[in-house]
């Protein structure tokens, strides 16, 4: 009995370990806070451990965990909204001058641009371009149709592209001046 339980927990740990980084990145993308993301992942792991018997029936473990992670994070955001009526977007969008000068390289500026996209769009673009997930998997996680995922992905990429072009023009103008 003990041996069985031990095997069960090893199996569970391995499954979590295989996906913990992805879960963390997803939580961080939605919550836009590294510490809150860590807490959320821990909470999810506890919840999944309690329901571990049901996990045997799950076909795509990665997608299932990502979906659970997103739902949990959305709950957290909703609770935050209830507690303090500050829009999460507002607080995050304001960056102090120190942070702005700190972001010298363009890549981290772009990461910042992605963070400012609406939750669905930033979640989708990251699941696709960072995690390399199939549209069908993203559809499963976000509870959307593949077509809707595709539309949101396109919007997200276009918005980032526009900002890149804008930033490029601004840099060129300052150089010519």
């Amino acid at each position: 009995m003990r041996h069985y339980k031990c095997m069960e927990s090893i199996q569970f740990n391995n499954q979590i370990l295989n996906h913990s980084d992805q879960l963390f990145r997803l939580a961080k993308s939605i919550l836009r806070n590294g510490d809150a993301a860590k807490d959320a992942v821990q909470e999810l792991i506890m919840k999944l451990w309690e329901k571990r018997i049901q996990l045997d029936d799950v076909e795509n473990m990665q997608a299932f965990m990502m979906r659970s992670m997103r739902n949990l994070c959305l709950d957290i955001i909703r609770q935050q909204h209830d507690e303090d009526e500050l829009p999460a977007e507002f607080e995050y969008a304001e960056r102090n001058p120190y942070q702005q000068t700190e972001q010298k390289d363009f890549a981290s500026q772009i990461r910042n641009m992605i963070d400012k996209l609406p939750e669905l769009q930033r979640t989708i673009i990251r699941m696709r371009d960072v995690e390399g997930m199939e549209l069908a998997e993203i559809a499963y996680v976000t509870l959307l149709t593949e077509n809707a995922v595709s539309v949101n992905l396109s919007r997200a990429r276009q918005k980032i592209r526009e900002q890149i072009i804008k930033e490029q023009k601004r840099v060129e103008e300052t150089v010519w001046k």
Binding site: S9, I10, F12, N13, I16, L17, S20, D21, L23, F24, R25, K28, K38, V41, Q42, I45, M46, W49, A107, S108, I110, R111, I114, R126, D129, V130, E131
Partner: peptide, 19 residues
């Protein structure tokens, strides 16, 4: 940027999982 984000990993304490 995508490549950078992929390097963003959950640090150690998180890896000590439930059991």
């Amino acid at each position: 940027a995508f490549e950078q984000e992929k390097q963003d990993i959950a640090i150690e304490p998180l890896k000590k999982v439930i059991r």
